[in-house]
Design a protein around this nucleic acid. Structure first.
Lengths: 211, 211
DNA sequence: ATGCACACGTTAATATCTTAACATTTTTTT
DNA sequence: AAAAAAATGTTAAGATATTAACGTGTGCAT
């Protein structure tokens, strides 16, 4: 693989999408594909596809195109999907519970190891075979179990405190669903899913459809 | 308000974030704020903030700054949050159910009017006071009830079919949670929440934290 | 009342991202 | 076997987006 200099975030955001289409193609038994054909499927220009992929190395072959299976494997590796990730969920309301199931079903490699909540009614519950533990046990749990990803599904009032605990507990990344921007150290990856923002964007576009 | 030419999507994505911070400021009783102070809070450059806001009109005043309450109201209006949106949810698994509650609690103005599922075990259930109807009734429901937003929480195999029904039923926008890119007409707004893509991005960033 | 500092709106410059063009290599066809 | 077609990697051009610079109007202090 080519020396990865500084890859822009826009490129990274596109990689999972490439991967999805390649997966579909694999399932259909397609062996090879050109940037032009991919362009027709995905909707990015062929030029952009070649440009994107070339950030990481020359995966294709002139006159031939790309080997679907090999490219899928390369992208998976770039994204780090050849590894496993241990995750915990903090905040076990509807969304937290949904994610506990979601990740279980859809994403091998992302393993929910524990769940935490402050609500006594939820503590002790088993969701998708994972026990909900009391929030006060979070610190010591993190000390005893190395965790890669912390998922925050609390209300916004608690989110930063939870993030601080996760960072102190040496998680490598945080997946944040709280309606709030978190401050974490440089060495912790942060991915926000602001559902509320997303819905508001949708509202805007609904009102400006003729533009 | 200024004539809205063609506003870039990046700007729109930032508006809800501005709005959130302004809401916090309102709650704290702050009356006025400068682009510099906002910059320190939000993390965008002051220049970008002025640039963004100026796309829609001159909301500030030289030597003074912006009136927090007025700016909040303006942004709300731009986003279309001065209106109500009737929504239905198709696919009532964990995620669909979570959203039924989520939107209820957190977003006045976004009203879940109906829920649909193909699973007989879910049909008839009441979630957050909304009855889950059989999926086969979707078409006639949409004919009888004008709906603004359709939320797709099905698996990817059904997502395009559902989208087609929603479009035929004259929804104005689709909020898509299925792991799939949908094709809809030009006159329908589409907002994707690809959780799986998001998690994969996070994985990438976890593995490239020193860059 | 006058001057100074503040801070917007706007124009200009810079940086980034996307698209197009092309030279080269491989495959396919005649 | 030779020529034509296909399709990459890469360089160049064009388009967007971000940041900086600046002129001007407003408020506050002396």
């Amino acid at each position: 693989m080519k020396e990865t200099g500084k890859i822009s975030k826009a490129v990274i955001k596109r990689l999972p999408r490439y991967r999805r289409y390649l997966e579909d193609l694999m399932k259909k038994g397609v062996d090879r594909i050109s940037s032009n054909e991919l362009s027709n499927l995905i909707g990015y220009t062929a030029s952009q596809i070649r440009q994107d992929l070339n950030n990481f190395g020359g995966f294709g072959q002139q006159g031939y195109g790309y080997n679907v299976k090999a490219l899928h494997a390369e992208i998976s590796k770039i994204l780090g999907l050849d590894k496993d990730y241990k995750m915990i969920i903090v905040g076990c309301g509807n969304l937290g519970q949904a994610l506990a199931n979601y990740t279980h079903y859809y994403k091998a490699g992302f393993i929910v190891c524990g769940m935490f909540d402050i609500n006594p009614r939820l503590v002790g519950l088993r969701i998708n075979d994972i026990e909900v533990m009391d929030y006060s046990l979070l610190d010591e749990y993190l000390e005893a179990h190395p965790i890669d990803i912390g998922i925050i599904c609390t209300n916004k009032g608690s989110a930063q405190e939870v993030a601080d605990k996760l960072v102190a507990g040496k998680v490598k990344g945080i997946w944040n669903f709280a309606t709030m921007d978190l401050t974490v150290g440089e060495d912790v990856a942060l991915e926000n899913v602001h559902l509320s923002d997303s819905l508001q964007s949708l509202a805007y576009h609904i009102n400006h459809r003729e533009d």
